[in-house]
Amino acid sequence: MKEDALLCLRDVSFSYHTGRQVLTHVDLTIRAGERIAVLGPNGAGKSTLFLLMNGVLRPSRGSIYYKGRRMDQKNSNELRRSVGIIFQDADSQIIAPSVREEISFGPMNLKLSSAVVEERVAHAIASVNLQGFEERPPHYLSGGEKKRVSIADIIAMKPDVFLFDEPMACLDPAHARRVETLLEDLSGQGKTLLVSTHDVDFAYRWAQRILIVQEGSLKADGTPPAVFAQEALCRDANLSCPVLLRIEKMLESRDLLRAKGRNPRTVEELELLLKQGNDCVSPAGPAQG
């Protein structure tokens, strides 16, 4: 096992009591500080994968290692402390009658002193910009606000790894952007992030690494350009090519982009590349009059 491996899944399979096999032979190593997007159709096993990584579900076969230690029934609580899940449906996560109490649930379960819990709750509320909402009951919050509460829930537990299950689903563009900024912030703090999503453009610009899960197994694992270069695989998983990658290919094929294979992640990066390319070209080009 590599030195910097944080979370390892070794030949993990999982099936529910009904016998339905959800995950088969998953091998995965996650290193500290990585930003990983998990793509794949609904029902492919992404949520189950997350529940396994957090220790709520136990693998039917194979094993999970955290910081090199094998996680079993006895120390599964350690896994829950170090890996936090933000569920897709905030309503299934929120249980308390007020925002402050809700966010305190996780830290209280960590058996921290009330002074520390209070400080963590305040910090979590500030990091999702929900100051002034402390006493609000969750049923008077909007969808986007509930999402932020569910993220603050996990921030207050200070885990090393954050698992986001489709965090942008059902959010308006403003809230989706807010969540993306939050992801940037957490990543800046050195946290390890896994985000399951259907948005290939987001995955392409945000992730350092992409996993494709389909029919219960890991079909691809690599950098975004490498994964999206495998066209047949993306077609099988019903994933379209990110718009920026298509534009880059198009520009390259028409010889409009000199700097080849640079894979700009954002429109701004592409613009910069185009500008640099043209700057290099212009002295040799025809004189402007």
Partner: peptide, 19 residues
């Protein structure tokens, strides 16, 4: 779902909030 979400946050049998 709710039970899973509670377990994921370290629930061990008693619901406790900050007083």
């Amino acid at each position: 779902d709710c039970y899973h979400a509670m377990e994921a946050r370290g629930y061990e049998g008693t619901i406790c909030f900050l007083e």
